[in-house]
Design a protein around this nucleic acid. Structure first.
Lengths: 168, 168
DNA sequence: TTCCGTGCAAATCTTTTGCACGGTC
DNA sequence: GACCGTGCAAAAGATTTGCACGGAA
């Protein structure tokens, strides 16, 4: 069975890339933000945070569940319901970004702040999801945001097409 | 009950807008394209085409069903399954664009070619969906498309934020 | 007449909700 | 000890599929 929506490998070394985050881990940052927002600590949330922090790109809720189930003890798996609840909390605090690729499954990834800001390339054939950044694009969006009748808080850009493998 | 994902009215007269399409209707264009692709004519598809052609912005499958049910005869309603099937066909032929706003429902709208190309503003508070165009943005995307490892066929840009009404 | 397009109902699949238990504060 | 976080099971929605009929070619 073909597994769609896989994260494409590091294929973008020749494009401008975001600077890699240093110390204050996203995991730590997120943990603090959650505590500040009044959330208690919980095992499931902690594992989801750790997993997201280790990812290089967006994952669906089901993928997160599978990966946690592989690594963790079978006796106490993280339930899917918790994963959705946690992702919702994180998204509402702006700690994770939700991405819709048009495949019907939402993808989530750690929001690492300005230095981690990026967008995605989606291969409509195999579902590969590849991150990219482009400062010219960001400048254009920044200018545009001033002219639209919306108090812009965020933006999402997806380029659809055929990836190198699928474009035969 | 608040009805989310409604199309915001014509609120963008002061922003650069796309030129209005003249004669060869999208309905006609799409009908021809379907015939060329070997599809037979069918009542449900015809009604969906007509409805989409009359819309000013994206609609969900359920909204389309409701509107068709209101207008058409109760005796022979267009079934939701047909609507999904038809939207899929149209999307695969590039005749309609599928838009995911993050609300969990896919939106569809007539793809009117270059002159109808546009993007969307999404109010994360009330769900209002507003179309906009920006030629500078298109130029930037066009340039960018040359630099990424993807044979770009399309792009999707969504600005999230608070609309004029919701930003109190 | 052949075969496609459609409606209907049931099946899938993702995401959400209700509830009870166990851990955090 | 009070309450939140979590797992489990069931519910809710959106979308898809199986099947039989009726219309298009």
């Amino acid at each position: 069975v073909v597994r769609p929506d896989r994260c494409a490998g590091a294929a973008l070394d020749w494009i401008e890339m975001a600077t890699v985050e240093t110390p204050p881990t996203w995991y730590e940052h997120a943990s603090r933000a959650l505590a500040r927002a009044g959330y208690r600590r919980g095992a499931a949330r902690d594992r989801v945070l750790a997993l997201l922090d280790a990812q290089q790109c967006a994952r669906t809720a089901v993928e997160i569940e599978d990966e946690l189930r592989q690594r963790g003890p079978r006796s106490r798996p993280v339930s899917r319901a918790s994963i959705y609840r946690i992702l919702d909390e994180l998204a509402s605090l702006g700690l994770v970004t939700r991405i819709e690729t048009g495949s019907g499954h939402a993808h989530y990834e750690a929001a690492r702040g300005r230095s981690g800001h990026h967008h995605h390339l989606v291969c409509d054939h195999c579902g590969a999801l590849t991150p990219f950044t482009d400062s010219q694009l960001e400048r254009t969006i920044h200018q545009l945001a001033k002219r639209v009748p919306l108090d812009v808080s965020d933006h999402e850009i997806i380029l659809h097409g055929a990836c190198s493998n699928c474009a035969h």
